[in-house]
Every structure is written in C-alpha cells, then in structure tokens.
C-alpha cells in the first residue's frame, strides 16, 4: 500500500488527516478500536502542528515489522518554534497553549511506539507506530 503525505495548515486539514488515517488503517486491516486510536492520535498531533507551527505535514507509511506484522507509521513534522522542554511537554496537564495538556502524553498511551524529536528553532517531528 502506498504512503500518504497530507499538508497540515488549517483546522479543516486536521479533519481530513484523521479521516485519511482511519481509512488507511481500515484498509490495512486494523480493528475498529485501533482505527479509532490512530484517528485520535492523528487529531491530537495534527492540531499541535497547526496550532504551534502554523503549518507542517503528516506522512502516513504502511510498514512491516521484523517479525512480519503489518503496521502503520505516522510522521508529523514541522519547521515551527520547536519544544524547549520535551520532558515537561510529555507530562499530563502541561500545556503552553491553553489546552488540557493531554495531547502528547495521551497520544503516547494510545500507540505502541512514540518518538519525539524537537529543539527550539529546529521544528518538531513526532513519529508514532502501531501494529496489528
């Protein structure tokens, strides 16, 4: 299955992104609960891109693990301001944007793999993966 790249520039793109990820997850054979987890993670992380960096993109990559399991990898990247304190940003309830502070820590709990690379002035890349 082909990978997908989705531009994230406004609120409508967030809706499009979570819809596309759900369809892709369904096509790969993910069950309904996992489709919902992936759509929800996409909504949280795509909103972060639009809210903090104004623009960026999502790359959705169907992948296969070393032991032959089908999975989906999602990469959210932007050239925004970056995150000065990643440890703080990963804490429940921490938010610099007036939100609930559930986006990053909550997303981490919803998927099997979660990685965040960011530094002030160098943008942010969040990579998640989930397996069937």
């Amino acid at each position: 299955m082909e990978s997908k790249s989705i531009l994230l520039e406004n609120e409508h793109d967030i809706v499009v992104a979570r819809g596309e990820v759900r369809s892709l997850a369904a096509a790969l054979g993910f069950g309904f609960v996992d489709q919902t987890r992936l759509a929800t993670v996409t909504s949280e992380l795509a909103r972060n891109v639009v809210k903090y960096a104004r623009r960026g993109r999502l790359i959705a990559l169907p992948v296969e693990s070393a032991d032959g399991r089908t999975g989906l990898r999602l990469i959210f990247e932007d050239d925004g301001p970056g995150i000065p304190d990643i440890a703080a940003a990963m804490r429940d309830g921490f938010s610099t944007g007036g939100g609930l502070g559930k986006g990053l820590p909550g997303s981490k709990r919803l998927v099997a793999e979660f990685q965040i690379d960011s530094a002030p002035g160098r943008g942010t890349r969040v990579t998640v993966a989930h397996w069937i």
Binding site: V33, T36, L110
Partner: peptide, 14 residues
C-alpha cells in the same frame, strides 16, 4: 458514546 471512543478517551486521560 461508542465503545471504541470510551476506550480512547480513558487512554487519553480524559
């Protein structure tokens, strides 16, 4: 609230 939504809400911490 759908079951899948209930699961993700709790995992999110909401």
């Amino acid at each position: 609230i759908q079951p899948a939504v209930a699961i993700t809400l709790v995992e999110l911490g909401l």
